[in-house]
Write a protein that binds this DNA or RNA. Structure first.
Lengths: 340, 340
DNA sequence: TTGTAAGCGTTATCAA
DNA sequence: TTGATAACGCTTACAA
């Protein structure tokens, strides 16, 4: 009834054909005559046949799975990316293995490939230690790994990313449009590629709008976290003069900043406008709801998965087209307001 | 160098033994003489041999993977549970497949078992539709599924859960100890097992401390979310009298409540004490930091995985010992204060 | 267009 | 204690 244990032999018997024909019907229908095809399909239906993955993988010398390497399973930012990845890989009959990079042993990661548990890997963690990455690349052919969101500048692996510079630029433009000229920026982790890109976008925009950057208002958050934002707020408060608007490198930073400001009687957006980056789920429920730059996380996931799949099946990208930039979107909410 | 493609045959050749002996050395060392063992191990080392998972799985008629079914990949509550699960399964050479229940098709889920992609399943979602669960149980033997955190009361599957009643009781006890007698409760989703258990714990404690429950202060949150909390706050505000302390069925609810209260000039903990449930990561960074009942999420994951593994290997639990309760812990922070 | 049959790398049975 | 070998279920030359 549940079709448990039905093999291709059984289907062949029922359909009155050979196992080869059943196999072809299922994986290469074009090679099979219509009538035969129909008979096979009927037999499949009747027997409740399900292919045995292990046998298929063994024969095809593949793993049938993709490994997704996350920096931190607990960070809500990644959930939708995973959805995007899943939606693509599921339709290709690939399983999704997920692993948290924090605390993973080098050998463990490489092992996934050495013992044929994974055909490819999507790396969502730009902070993966150099040694690990190096050994990984040694073992894993180029066409079996892609970066998504974060990346390491000194590798040639394909990379799918948001337009971080453009997003930062949009954020500043939005603030300027509201009349702000005294604009600060809270950066992410030092050395992080996202931090750098967003800072560059910030600087470009400020230059373009002919606004001097006040270095007092350029604060090093240190990490993408609430606490970093709260810390930054305390630094702002100690200054002689506050900016009228602040662009934060991440939503978590922005929310931490706003909370801490509130604690000190500084109200957002009345006293200061604040804009974030990411548009994580909580952003639109935060009080005040957070104006932010939305990353299209689903699409990031879809593209990463698609790129990897194309690579795996040989339709690899040329080396120069290795970066795919995904557009971001300004989402206006309550945390930014016209300069009063 | 990377050992890619080395087979057991190669190892056998190098060690000067048969493939059977290599296999035994690796999976059943007791059956092999010490000297031979040493030679085999040396050959393994030398050749960089890694077992081929697909071949092993085919031969052993297994999938080598466990499926974890989440209600919502985006909910940060689940991350540490996954860590716990991973830590156990990784040591057993099992891969972890993760799937989001939202929007999953019934057939898809069942398919994981029918085509031997998963040996077992850990269900973290008590809200899984009845039909899906029913079909799943039809296909999946009893000993291959466990519930963790949430569960369905009308099934016999093993269940690992926090002591939800006890936690609610502790929450109330903590408030009473601070001098509060006017205590409210914001419930979770109607019909959810966690909601029911926590309400029961609340009621038990109130009875025990001889406090009448004011039904105006028993508010239906509707879901475990920030918005639910904000909504509840609005309902509280419309009442003639506010409680002096509120127990929320989840941290997200508590934070939403506090935010909305703040918006209306009601300060936590000065005007009202608030206590949550879960201790999600953001709780200790929230302003005010949130007093809450901590669920031992790692242990929930570890126990769920261990239970499933024991089941799979035949060391199944007797049917009457099907529920494992995990202790919770009161974490005192700033959102609760003595009654002034 | 279809069938035959070899072989993917392992484990388990049986015999030695 | 070890070895020879069949079998797990599938795909793919090659032959028909």
């Amino acid at each position: 009834m549940s079709g448990k244990g039905t093999t291709i032999q059984e289907v062949a018997r029922v359909a009155g054909v050979s196992t080869a024909t059943v196999s072809r019907t299922l994986s290469n229908p074009d090679l099979v005559r219509d009538g035969t095809k129909k008979a096979v399909l009927a037999a499949v239906e009747k027997t409740g046949y399900r292919i045995n993955r292990a046998a298929q993988n063994l024969r095809k010398q593949q793993a049938g799975a993709i490994l997704v390497l996350l920096p931190d399973l607990g960070n809500p930012f990644f959930s939708q990316i995973l959805s995007g990845i899943e939606s693509v890989l599921t339709t290709s009959d690939l399983s999704v293995l997920i692993t948290d990079a924090s605390g993973i042993k080098q050998s463990q990661l490489v092992g996934y490939f050495q013992d044929t548990r994974a055909d490819g890997i999507i790396i969502l963690d730009g902070a993966i230690p150099h040694g690990v990455l190096k050994e990984l690349i040694e073992v894993v052919p180029d066409n079996r790994a892609v970066f998504a969101c974060e990346w390491k500048p000194d590798t040639k692996l394909p990379s799918i990313r948001s337009d971080n510079q453009g997003g930062a630029h949009q954020a500043v433009a939005h603030l300027v449009e509201l009349g702000h000229r005294k604009i600060g920026h809270v950066l992410g982790p030092r050395g992080n590629v996202l931090t750098k890109e967003r800072l560059t976008g910030f600087e470009r925009a400020m230059l373009e709008f002919d606004i001097d950057i006040n270095s007092n208002w350029l604060i090093d958050g240190g990490e993408f976290s609430l606490e970093a934002g709260a810390q930054a707020a305390r630094q702002f408060i100690e200054l002689d003069e506050l900016p009228t608007a602040i662009f934060c490198a991440a939503d978590l930073i922005a929310m931490g900043l706003i909370s801490e400001f509130a604690k000190h009687g500084i109200s957002v957006p009345n006293d200061v406008s604040v804009i974030g980056f990411d548009d994580i789920a909580i952003a639109y429920r935060f009080i005040p709801s957070l104006t932010t730059i939305r990353q299209n996380r689903i699409q990031l996931g879809v593209l990463a998965a698609t790129t990897l799949m194309n690579s795996l099946s040989g339709r690899s990208m040329p080396a120069e087209n290795n970066v795919q930039l995904v557009d971001v979107l300004l989402v206006e909410r309550e945390s930014t307001a016209p300069l009063s």
